[in-house]
Design a protein around this nucleic acid. Structure first.
Lengths: 351, 351
DNA sequence: CACGTGACTGTGAGCGCTCACAGTGCCAGA
DNA sequence: TCTGGCACTGTGAGCGCTCACAGTCACGTG
């Protein structure tokens, strides 16, 4: 008995190891009475494994409580099974925007369905940007979902130059980028709601546009102009400094000052519209009686404003799903192209 | 000279490899004229490396564009350098709540400062919960930041039972859990604002409380009761079904029906307060003239309501920082204890 | 002058996995 | 009966890193 330890040094070591730090494939193989390779095969859904072996392996996995070691797997496959969700925004205002949350949530969920995970990263400062680049190039993630709203975002350029799998949310403002994007049809949606305001018999339709270095700012204004053409009222366009409530308030006040006889306004986002409604209220204008208000996004706040906001719905869950799908294609080396998804009008009390 | 190529077969191979899939430590070592071990030492900030070697290695890293392979490192260190941010919520309403966003953003940023990353996970369904457990136990992350608001959350129990490093946000409703938490002083904050309403000369102070399976629901109501005691008006307490705008509206309407002569109301969250303000407006009550309204959170929406919301400020950035710090301690095997951070009153127009 | 000492460096043995390849056994067809 | 093919299985060689250990070298010190 005294040499029992030295007789089975290896198996005892394996047993100790198994309990200390979780079972390995080797342990599972031993329990199932097969080899490492067979375990690997059932794990990876490969063919050429007999039903009996398969059952034995599965039972052994259950019995031992086996979980794959992703580090070991990644080391050889060079796939991390993770994707970075990068918010590239000078100020991180976007975090307050319900649109962003919905997108983040949807992406997380969709990735999870495929057993991938989402790593959230911020890239507001140059240091953060460097970190993102190192992270992605270091193979921590297989690809990037980039939420970047600003023209000339250096991160987009760097990622693009490095040839990494990247999908952008929203039409990228820089035409030079090769990477595909997934966007809602901003321009079409803006046309939709502007036409709707027109159809309500309003003639002096102004707009609070978004910042001109964002896709939402540019495209939605373009859609508005598509419909109104020369009928855009004098001083009827004011740009908000960002997509916040406060900016909406300020822009609406400016609009009222420059174009006091407006009878409808298309506001480029719901959050801006919340501010605009306040400014209208403060100025004693009744909505919708005196002024119709149309928003954009159909975010969670839209049905909760006073009055409830008529707005344009972005299919965000679908945007998320398509972004993930396109990214998958890129990661797998398949060709991928950009996609634009239709927007729809949602009528509520404000217009 | 003719055998130059064959003299350095290894170095040529290394060079080829380096360009194919990124340089390894071996490549860096070769360029620096040192060994793998020395490179590893400078990488890990170890001592016993001569300044010359150190400089050579750093130069070689720069020259080759070396980035560590985290998979390989994790495989041996059993540390992933990542942390899971898990949102464990039956319905994922919380995603709409600005409070949650601020917390998520702050955690991401703080972790990034230490070169760790944040993996976002949802755990609404049993399947998702299983996935989280496998993920954490599989060593994908070193610990968990758990944002769970509901009593009897099975994930909290499972994580706790598994003895994994976990920090909960908010006082965990279940007393049986061993894991530490970081919370804002909900009860103290509720006392603060209730006392403030009292000090304004109001005597019929009602409350819209949060769900009773959440810390915010329980603690804030307790603070309210601490101050009012027997002075809580008859039918002056209504529970919201969740922390949403719609629930706030419904609860406030119910409150007005049961307790029509109320002259102030403490609403357990800003989002609820938005709904409550609407309900009051719909009922023709003026705020703050007829009814004072106090919220809780001081989220981004508070200054943007009509009138701006007097509320209780939660130090969310600090909560995030402390959560990360406590989790670090846990991961490093150091003892860690729960922390409660002070809340403060923010006066605006509604009270 | 031998020898311990301490700073520094190189080396081998893995971590747990996948992948390519080399078996093994079984059956149909020659 | 032999052979080729097929379904299935085991095995070795790494992936790139860290860690423990075993050097090496230049110093003092006895």
């Amino acid at each position: 008995m005294s040499d029992g330890a030295s007789v089975h040094p290896k198996s005892r070591g394996a047993a100790r190891r198994a309990q200390r730090r979780g079972p390995t494939m080797e342990d599972v193989a031993e329990v199932a009475g097969v080899s490492r390779g067979t375990v690997s095969r059932v794990l990876n859904g490969a063919f050429h494994v007999s039903p009996e072996s398969q059952a034995a392996v599965r039972a052994a996995m259950r019995e031992t409580g086996y979980v794959v070691n992703q580090s070991a797997r990644s080391l050889v496959t060079r796939r991390s099974g993770a994707v970075a969700f990068v918010l590239s925004e000078p100020q991180d205002r976007l975090f307050e925007d319900p649109v962003f949350n919905v997108l983040l949530r949807a992406c997380t969920q969709i990735l999870a369905e495929d057993d991938s995970s989402l790593v959230l990263m911020l890239a507001s400062t140059p240091q953060e940007r460097t970190r993102v680049m190192r992270f992605v190039q270091g193979g921590h993630v297989d690809g990037v979902l980039l939420v970047s709203t600003h023209t000339g975002d250096p991160l987009a350029t760097e990622l693009d130059a490095a040839g990494l799998p990247v999908v952008v949310c929203g039409r990228p403002p820089d035409a030079g980028l090769r990477m595909p994007y997934v966007a809602a049809d901003d321009r079409g949606g803006a046309r939709l709601i502007t036409q709707y305001l027109l159809d309500q018999g309003r003639h002096r339709i102004a707009t609070v546009a978004g910042p001109d270095d964002t896709a939402g700012g540019v495209e939605r204004l373009a859609g508005y102009r598509d419909v109104l053409g020369a009928r855009v009222p004098d001083r009827g366009v004011v740009r908000a400094t960002d997509f916040s409530i406060a900016a909406g308030h300020a822009a609406m006040a400016a609009l009222l000052a420059g174009c006091p006889d407006l009878d409808a306004v298309f506001v480029a986002s719901d959050l801006l519209a919340v501010g605009a409604l306040e400014a209208l209220h403060a100025a004693g204008r009744r909505v919708p009686d005196d002024v119709l208000v149309g928003g954009f996004d159909d975010s969670a706040i839209a049905p909760a404003t006073r009055p409830p906001l008529t707005t344009v719905r972005q299919p965000l869950a679908q945007v998320a799903a398509e972004m993930v799908e396109v990214l998958r294609q890129l990661i797998d080396g398949r060709p991928a192209s950009s996609r634009v998804l239709p927007t729809t009008l949602v009528r509520r009390g404000s217009a």
